[in-house]
Design a protein around this nucleic acid. Sequence first.
DNA 1: TTAATTTCCCACCAGATCGATAGGCTTTAG
DNA 2: CTAAAGCCTATCGATCTGGTGGGAAATTAA
Lengths: 159, 159
Amino acid sequence: MVGSPGLAYTLGMLTQKAKYGLRALCVLAAEAGSRRPMPIHDVADKAHVPHKFLEAILLDLRRHGFVESRRGKAGGYAMARSPAEVRVSDIIRALDGPLAPIPCASLTAYQACLDCADPPTCAIQRLMRQVRDATAAVLDGTTLADLAESEAAALTNCG
Amino acid sequence: MVGSPGLAYTLGMLTQKAKYGLRALCVLAAEAGSRRPMPIHDVADKAHVPHKFLEAILLDLRRHGFVESRRGKAGGYAMARSPAEVRVSDIIRALDGPLAPIPCASLTAYQACLDCADPPTCAIQRLMRQVRDATAAVLDGTTLADLAESEAAALTNCG
DNA sequence: TTAATTTCCCACCAGATCGATAGGCTTTAG
DNA sequence: CTAAAGCCTATCGATCTGGTGGGAAATTAA
């Protein structure tokens, strides 16, 4: 199962990992409040994600505190925080790294370009900071609950 | 010469190629109106770009119509269009591909996710379109002339 | 005409990353 | 005890990134 193969696609790439992670979290968010955690296999089916890959992704999301797990029989995954309190930006940062297009424009992981003549006057850095801010504004302003609701709303509109 | 090695850096990555290309174009933009084209070697020195790599980049920019070249002695590169009429977004699209974080959110290179349950209702797609629009707003609204001027202004402020 | 200079173009390379899979270990419910 | 589930490590092929090298073609100057 391949998402989108062989394209020249570099700038702003959201990886399959993050896309899958978001889908999986939407599934878990819809189940929030349920008594029982949902096993990986069920999440994989509902989110259309290869379940072995999803295993690694959920593990990662657990380490970042987004989900909780229970092992053994009747085990599985559940949201650790309210979907309304989880920003999409945080999820993407956890799975894909910083939002900025270039390290020197990142707030959370700043790193100067080694080949930059003079970082404080670099126009590219200033421009890319604007891009970062614009991206962050969208992604900070959207919660997991918003995302899940958006999908549900679209379905009922067309249904 | 390495720009920024070994970081977990995926989302929104501006490649070295595009960064170098922007720097080189700024150099050529500053020289716009000059009678003589500038040889690659000079551009490479002024832009701090490995000159063999720059060769490939300038070739690419020429094919996309941003610069003109002249071969032989006294040859070199020059802007083919006025810096004020070249949008940064166009340069980045030429060197790095679409601006959207994911193909299904791209206007210029739309491609549906093969693993998407129902593209028209996909909330991730809608969100990523917002990200694309926000990025494009910044990059469409900035010209090469703006970029070059921004750098020059910063220099005089600190000088 | 010849030499020097410069772009053009091709092939190649090492390292990193991405997307994904395999298989074994540990924990838990019943 | 056993089945079910998460946990963990290792691996893999394909692709991309960031570069380099070498030579052919073009242009100019002497």
